[in-house]
């Protein structure tokens, strides 16, 4: 190990990359929903929490095989996304944005409280530990590698779906001109419901990967909700590519900043960067 080449710095950078993958995955669903429906799901991280509980109960309590439990959890959260749209978002679709924020914020508190009542405040975890991947002196979390792959896979699959299929094209079109969609033979209500389910499914996918690394508790959303939201805003709300790029930038600030200074400073630097970008480009890095 030479003086110029710092293996620990490299480890920090690579860990930042992996964290970026996780954050990118988190931002996908929120961005999709905002981009299409123009409503911010403040309760997005709480949907993820529900997904984590679903994996936990199916796998630990009901002894389903893990992969099956995860697929089911994705289905459950997709359903929750759909339900959220039908019950909560639809009535306020044309309301002021502040009211939309308030209702989804209400759902956030509702889900937290409901989870506390239903599952208790105890921390739960799968008890599954993935091995780590060694690379000389460096060592990385397999769970993070999987999350990274899933984020990459998710973004590519989503991109193909949105650019190559009729349904995907309609999803992009509807955010540009909602009113004339019926003239194309498209039922906007169905597209919205579908997008919500898809956003939920992405939250479910994120849940499956988080549950491999984090304990589950009713307040887990607080650890991920704000940072996910920041990343989406940083990349340009509704812009999926922007969110993807922003996640990796943000993660590098956290990881490398935390390596050179105190861990806390990594976050502080990331937030300073966020504020600076907001002054420079209020609509985000890739926002229009």
């Amino acid at each position: 190990m030479s003086d110029i080449f710092d293996v620990y710095l490299l480890e920090a950078v690579l860990n930042g990359l992996l964290l970026g993958g996780l954050l990118a995955l988190l931002s996908l669903g929120l961005n999709l929903v905002f981009g299409v429906i123009d409503v911010v799901w403040i309760c997005y991280a709480e949907l993820i929490m529900c997904g984590m509980y679903a994996v936990y109960y199916l796998h630990v309590q009901y002894h389903w095989p893990l992969v099956l439990a995860m697929l089911a959890a994705i289905g459950v959260v997709a359903f929750l996304g759909w339900l959220l749209h039908q019950l909560v978002i639809r009535p306020v679709l044309n309301a002021e944005p502040i009211n939309q924020l308030l209702v989804t914020g209400g759902v956030l508190f509702f889900l937290q409280a409901a989870a506390t009542l239903a599952f208790g405040i105890e921390f739960k975890n799968l008890g599954v530990t993935l091995p780590s991947v060694r690379l000389g002196e460096m060592s990385f979390s397999a769970a993070r590698l999987v999350a990274f792959g899933a984020a990459l896979g998710g973004v590519i699959a989503l991109w193909i779906f949105l650019s190559k299929t009729y349904l995907g094209t309609a999803i992009r079109a509807i955010s540009q001109d909602r009113a004339i969609m019926p003239l194309m033979g498209v039922d906007p209500g169905r597209i919205f419901a579908l997008t919500s389910a898809l956003g939920g499914a992405l939250a479910g996918l994120a849940a499956c990967l988080l549950v491999l690394q984090y304990d589950i508790h009713p307040a887990i959303g607080l650890s991920f909700g704000p940072i996910t939201f920041l990343i989406c805003v940083l990349g340009g709300l509704g812009n999926m590519l922007g969110g993807f790029v922003a996640a990796f930038i943000f993660a590098q600030f956290i990881a490398v900043g935390g390596f050179f200074f105190a861990v806390e400073w990594g976050y502080v630097i990331a937030f300073i960067f966020f504020i600076a970008v907001m002054f420079w480009r209020p609509r985000g890095i890739l926002g229009k």
Partner: peptide
């Protein structure tokens, strides 16, 4: 062309 594709949705 994507606009045209939307026209052919049905």
């Amino acid at each position: 062309e994507e606009n045209l594709r939307m026209g052919a949705y049905t």
